[in-house]
Nucleic acid binder design. Structure first.
Lengths: 236, 236
DNA sequence: GAAATTAATATGTATGCACATAATAATCCT
DNA sequence: AGGATTATTATGTGCATACATATTAATTTC
C-alpha cells in the first residue's frame, strides 16, 4: 500500500494546519521557537512537502507563524491576529441588515479642496476636483453621510455620470478599482452633519476617511460619518 | 523549446494574477462575466494549471472573483474589497508609533457581570468572572482605557498571574489564543472614563468591544476606549 | 583577523499527473 | 412529461520532482 495512498492515509492541508495549530495552542511549539522544517513535517504526516507548505503558509498569513527562507518557521511571540475587514458597501450592508436602502444626492459640484483634502490626496494644485455629498438611509432613517472629493484627472468618465441614481462609490468600485489606499476611522462630534444625520451637533459619530489610488494617481477621498447608533461589526 | 520552459518562458503566479487583474480593471473581463477556465488560461499563459489556480485563488480571496466548481470563475459584480485588520496589540502599536509605552493596572477583582456582558458572553450564570481595568499610556499620555471581563472557567490559569506587569491581553494572546470571536466599534461619549483618559465627559471617544471564544467556551470580553485624538489607521 | 567568496539549507514556486468534489447537463425510465 | 439516474465539467487538492531564492554558516583569501 504505497502508491494508492489517496484521500485515505494522506492528510489534507487543512487537517495538518489544524494539527499544527493545536500544537501551538498547547505550546508543544512554544512562542518564539522554531518548528520542524517542511521536509520533516511531511515525513511525520506522511504527505508531500507541498501539502505541509500550504498548511504553514496559511498559518503564517493568519499571523501565528513567521517564515523566512533558510531561517525556518517559528511561532510568533505575540501572534498578531488578523481580521478581514470587508470595505463597507453601504447599499449591500443596509440591505443585508434587512432594511430598505435609499440614497440621496445632496450636492454635486466642482470645488476647491480644503488644505486637509489636498494633503491627503497629495494634490499639486492644478487638478480638477468634483465634490459629491450624499445621504444614505436605512428604512427612511439617516444611516450615513458622505462627503467625497473625486479627482477628475484620474477618473474623467465620472463627470458624465448621473449620480442621482448611482452613488459615486458604487460607480467607482465598478469602473475604477483602486490599486491601494488608506483608511482611518475615529470618533468626533456630528457638528454640521447633525442636520443630515438627525442628531444633536455634539453627538458622537464614527467617521471613516478613505483615500484610494490608481497606482500613483489619487482617485478619491471619501469621508463617511455614520449615525450615532451605528456599530461596525466584524468577525474574527 | 517545449520541455525546458523553466523560469524563462514560464510565468509566475503573481504575474498571471496581475495580468488577470489588469483585464478585470480594463473590463476585458466584465463584471458578472465568466472568465476562461483554468485549463484554457494555463494554455494561454503556457504554464501549469496549478499556477493559474494559485493566481485565481488569490484574486478570489481578495474579493474580485467568485469561484464555484463546475460553475466556473466569474468577475464579481460589486468587488467587495477586503482589508486586513491587524488586531490592536496596544504595547506594540504604541512602541511602533515611537512613543514610550506604559501600562497601569487600575483594578482587578472578582465581580458580577452586568446583563450586557452576560449576554455578549452567553453566560449561564454560574461562571466565575474576573474583572480587570487598566490604562495604557503613550509617552505618559493616556492612550486607551480597558475594562475587561475574563471567564475563569475557561482560562483558570490567569487567576495566578500578576497582572501589574503583564496586561491581561498580552497573557491571553500568548497563553489562550482564541478560535474565533467578534469585534465591534462605535463612537460614544467618554462618560466616566473621562478621568482616566483626561478629557471631558462628553468628548467623543472610539470604543471597541471584543469578545473571544475557545470553541464554545467564552474567554473574555474587552471594552477598549481610545483617547479622543486617536485614529485607527489601515492600509488597503 | 577581517573581508570576500563559497557552500549549505529552508522556504518558495513551477510542472505534470491523478483523483476528489460539487454542480450542472444529459439521459433514461416509467 | 416528470422525476430519478448518470455523464460531464470546472475547480479543489494531493504527490513527486525540480529548480529558484534568500539567508545563514563555513571557508578561503589577503
Amino acid at each position: 500500500m504505497g502508491k494508492e495512498g489517496k484521500a485515505d492515509s494522506s492528510a489534507s492541508w487543512q487537517s495538518i494546519r489544524d494539527t499544527i495549530m493545536a500544537r501551538i495552542r498547547a505550546q508543544d511549539y512554544a512562542p518564539g521557537e522554531l518548528i520542524p522544517n517542511e521536509v520533516d513535517l511531511a515525513a511525520e504526516f506522511g504527505c508531500a512537502r507541498a501539502t505541509v507548505n500550504r498548511a504553514l503558509r496559511d498559518l503564517a498569513t493568519t499571523g501565528f507563524l513567521d517564515r523566512r527562507r533558510k531561517a525556518g518557521t517559528r511561532v510568533r511571540e505575540a501572534p498578531r491576529r488578523k481580521a478581514t475587514l470587508a470595505i463597507p458597501l453601504t447599499r449591500a450592508d443596509v440591505i443585508a441588515s434587512g432594511a430598505r436602502y435609499e440614497y440621496r444626492l445632496l450636492e454635486r459640484k466642482r470645488d476647491m479642496p480644503p488644505p486637509l483634502v489636498r494633503e491627503h490626496l497629495k494634490l499639486s494644485g492644478s487638478e480638477r476636483l468634483l465634490r459629491v455629498q450624499s445621504l444614505h438611509l436605512a428604512d427612511d432613517v439617516p444611516h450615513m453621510f458622505e462627503d467625497r472629493w473625486i479627482v477628475l484627472d484620474t477618473v474623467p468618465d465620472i463627470e458624465d455620470i448621473d449620480l442621482t441614481e448611482t452613488s459615486a462609490n458604487e460607480w467607482l468600485v465598478r469602473q475604477a478599482p483602486y490599486t491601494h489606499g488608506t483608511m482611518e476611522f475615529f470618533a468626533e462630534t456630528a457638528g454640521g452633519r447633525a442636520q443630515h444625520l438627525v442628531c444633536a451637533p455634539d453627538d458622537p459619530v464614527m467617521t471613516m476617511i478613505r483615500v484610494t489610488w490608481l497606482e500613483a494617481a489619487p482617485i478619491t477621498l471619501a469621508q463617511q460619518s455614520y449615525s450615532p447608533s451605528h456599530r461596525m461589526r466584524l468577525d474574527l
